[in-house]
Design a protein around this nucleic acid. Structure first.
Lengths: 210, 210
DNA sequence: TAGATTGTTAATCGATTAACAATC
DNA sequence: TAGATTGTTAATCGATTAACAATC
């Protein structure tokens, strides 16, 4: 992968989706796949797939398409860090606990290794197999574990505050479920999962005559 | 709002975000706002805000900017249906119950009025104040209640099947939490909330030197 | 009035789609 | 070989940003 190539967010998103689909195919024993098959599987176009895959430097052949094992390895090399990534979950309410369960079934490359809350009933014990700490210990624990990614699942009012603390402690990427625009330094990446907005968008298009 | 104007998804997303921010300001007693203030509040640009707001046909003034009460009303008229929208939640596992709690605090325009699951322990009773039915009753209940929007929070394997049944019963918009590309007719809108993809994207950018 | 902001149109930017020679 | 698919470049499309006369 060329060091100075600029790869769009959309491309990264699709690479992640390709990987999941290809892993599924791999477990089914499929060994090769053509760009248009992959495209149908994930809901895009063959041209898009081919263009996206060039960023990996992984190459297919006109007769066989892409080797799924090799392509999966390339996607892994590209998307994952060799040593895996520790993730902090901030906020262990209804949503937080659901996320804990959701991400616990993931492969080891991304792993929630610490959870935080202000509620004493949810701290200083294991929740879903993950140690839950009091919010006041965020900075220390993140630093100790070398955590660089955090999931924010706290109420709107608290989100900016916990983001600031997490970033101060070394976090460089945030998956934000709080419905606020976080103010962060330029070297910190924020992805917003705005469920209310998504719901309103769906409702809007559902009511359109089309 | 002009009948034949084509409005991009991105614009709809921002309108939803503007509304939430403006509602917050409204409750704080702020009555007027300039495009650049709104832009900072939601994390976009003033030019973007002004261009987006033109789709409402709601107009500001150079001296006062936008009247927040009036703008909120315009956004409501644009985004909401007069009679409100009933939403079905399909899948009452960890994530489904978290979503039930999350959306129960929303204003009345969007309301989860029915939940569905295959697990008998989660059906034929109220969950979070919402009647939970067995999956086999989906079609009937959706039809009876005139539901047009569904949230899919079932395992990957079941997602396409429940989507097909919901659409057959009249659903026109789906908020899909299952990590699969749903195949739907052209008049059905699907918004994917792919949490694994989002997490991988965050991890990718967190590890970039930048 | 002078200055700032508006609505709106034009210019720029970036992403998607199409095209095509090279390859198996 | 003939046919289909590949990598890659060019054309198209759409969204964002900039510009500016009109307005308060």
């Amino acid at each position: 992968m060329p060091e100075n190539a600029k790869i769009s967010e959309k491309t990264i998103e699709r690479l992640s989706i390709y990987r999941r689909y290809l892993s599924d195919q791999q477990t089914k024993g499929v060994t090769n796949i053509f760009s248009h098959q992959l495209a149908v599987g994930v809901g895009t176009t063959a041209a898009q797939v081919r263009q996206d895959l060039t960023v990996l430097g992984f190459t297919g052949t006109p007769s066989k398409g892409y080797d799924i094992n090799g392509l999966n390895q390339s996607l892994k090399d590209f998307l994952d860090t060799p040593e895996g990534t520790n993730v902090a979950l901030i906020g262990v309410g209804n949503l937080g606990r659901a996320l804990l369960a959701y991400f616990s079934v993931q492969r080891a490359a991304l792993k929630i290794t610490a959870a935080f809350d202000v509620d004493l009933r949810r701290t200083n014990r294991l929740i879903g197999g993950v140690p839950a700490y009091h919010m006041k210990d965020i900075g220390g624990v993140i630093r100790e574990q070398g955590i660089t990614v955090a999931i924010i699942a706290v109420p709107e009012m608290e989100a900016q505050k916990v983001a600031d603390i997490a970033i101060e402690a070394g976090v460089k990427g945030i998956l934000n479920f709080a419905p606020v625009a976080l103010r962060v330094p330029g070297d910190v990446f924020v992805e917003n999962m705005d469920m209310t907005m998504a719901m309103e968008k769906v409702a809007y298009y559902a009511q359109q005559p089309k």
